[in-house]
Amino acid sequence: MLSEFQETLLQSVKAYQSTQLVKNKYENVLQHLDSGIILFDSDGILTFINVEMAKLIDLPGQSLIGCNLLQVLRHPHLSRFLKRKVVQLYRETFLYSKKFHEFVDEYGRNWLITITYGDQMDGDFLLSVKDVTDFKRIEQTAYHNDKLAMLGKISAAIAHEIRNPLTSIRGFIQLLRPHLIQLGRDEYARIILAEIDRANDIIHEFLNSSKPTVPLKSIVDISTLLKEAVLLTESEALMKNCEVILNLQEDRVLNVSIDTKQIKQVILNIIKNAMEAIEEIEDDHGGIIAISTQPDGEFVNIIIQDNGNGMDKALMNRLFDPFFTTKENGTGLGLSVSYRIIKNHRGDITVDSTKGMGTVFVITLPMVGERL
């Protein structure tokens, strides 16, 4: 009898040890997943948290074992951002039965959160968190490429219809030019013809927007180009109660090797956007668009700042996407083409903005003799 009892006890011990080995094995797997894992039991007590999750919330996992959700939220070292997100997750999960959540953290990373509960979990709640930033980037790249393909088709369809009237207008302006010369207004004809040529160049850019265009470079002083751009926008700015202020490095020549027409197109497009942003503000005070230059080692920065309506971070993240626009009659092509133009010049274009506080665009171009 005693022998049978000992044998049964031995089998029970072996079974327990086997169960523990399996449990430890699975716990070890969960501990080393690249996703954050946290488990609450049916009483709402935190019973498991893996290494990755502890890293994500920047807290030692063992200090949270045995805590309920309220105690976790009251942890003195849990960030305010995470506290707000946990409350939001709790509300959306239990009020709207939402099991999948996506959010962007304060550093711009994308996260996917999955909450599993119900009969299959025996009352437990399993929460997993995964960094999907790379997947989002791939998705956005594919979306961007699809937009470029669509852009090429639309551009080809409209180019013929636009070019015909432009050709007619150009011909009539040339016929009128002798009369304008007699009136001492030849400068008007020159500007009109130059702008018609620029419009034709823009159409050409649209047709070639899905493939790189090699800029036809010449060496120019960036200050001269900016003065011409301001001259072209002064009348429109006056009608829209805007003042364009030009602050240049008069004591230094800032030569760049650029395609003048392309860079002028970029600058005029940003100035036009600034005027429209200023129009959105219901304010009797006039708008200000400040344009300045700033040498930066081997580069020069062109800074275009306005006191318009500004934009939030979500809008800024999509600003250079083809066809993305918030304007009723906009095409969403201007900044997309501008971005590609600057990149083809081995430069960079960035934007910083705050809703209601205005926007700053910075165009960076390499100077002559420096990294051309």
Score class of each variant (00 low, 15 high):
164 N>H: 11
268 L>F: 11
64 L>D: 00
17 Q>T: 07
132 V>G: 07
164 N>E: 08
152 G>F: 04
316 M>E: 15
344 N>Y: 02
270 I>P: 02
206 F>G: 10
189 A>N: 09
367 M>H: 05
30 L>W: 01
97 S>V: 10
338 S>A: 14
82 L>D: 03
75 H>Q: 13
286 G>C: 12
202 I>C: 06
312 D>W: 05
99 K>I: 14
91 R>W: 04
14 K>I: 11
95 L>Y: 03
75 H>S: 11
164 N>F: 15
350 T>I: 03
110 N>P: 00
247 N>R: 02
4 E>S: 15
296 D>E: 14
228 E>H: 12
186 D>N: 13
235 S>N: 11
90 Y>L: 09
294 Q>C: 07
50 N>Q: 01
83 K>R: 15
301 N>M: 09
46 L>A: 07
365 L>R: 01
7 E>T: 09
235 S>P: 01
300 V>P: 10
80 R>L: 11
265 Q>A: 13
175 L>W: 04
65 I>T: 10
18 S>F: 09
2 L>M: 08
239 M>L: 13
209 S>E: 06
139 E>M: 09
102 E>A: 02
186 D>G: 15
340 R>M: 10
179 H>G: 09
319 L>S: 07
285 H>K: 11
283 D>R: 10
174 Q>T: 01
41 D>P: 11
146 D>F: 07
135 F>D: 12
63 S>R: 02
323 F>T: 03
267 I>F: 12
12 S>F: 10
174 Q>D: 00
265 Q>G: 14
283 D>Q: 10
167 T>P: 00
291 I>W: 08
357 M>H: 05
155 S>C: 02
253 V>T: 01
364 T>K: 15
293 T>H: 05
302 I>W: 12
42 S>W: 13
317 N>F: 04
27 E>R: 08
291 I>L: 11
173 I>N: 00
63 S>M: 11
22 V>H: 12
304 I>D: 03
31 Q>K: 13
155 S>L: 01
1 M>H: 14
107 Y>A: 10
107 Y>W: 12
229 A>T: 15
112 L>K: 10
57 I>H: 10
5 F>R: 11
85 K>E: 14
43 D>G: 15
327 K>F: 08
214 V>R: 05
257 S>Y: 02
233 T>V: 01
292 S>D: 01
112 L>E: 15
269 N>H: 04
246 L>H: 00
85 K>D: 01
221 D>Q: 08
310 G>N: 05
270 I>R: 08
283 D>N: 15
248 L>Q: 00
196 I>C: 05
145 N>Y: 06
327 K>N: 13
129 V>D: 02
226 L>I: 07
86 V>D: 04
349 I>Y: 00
232 L>Y: 09
16 Y>Q: 12
45 I>F: 04
102 E>P: 04
86 V>E: 06
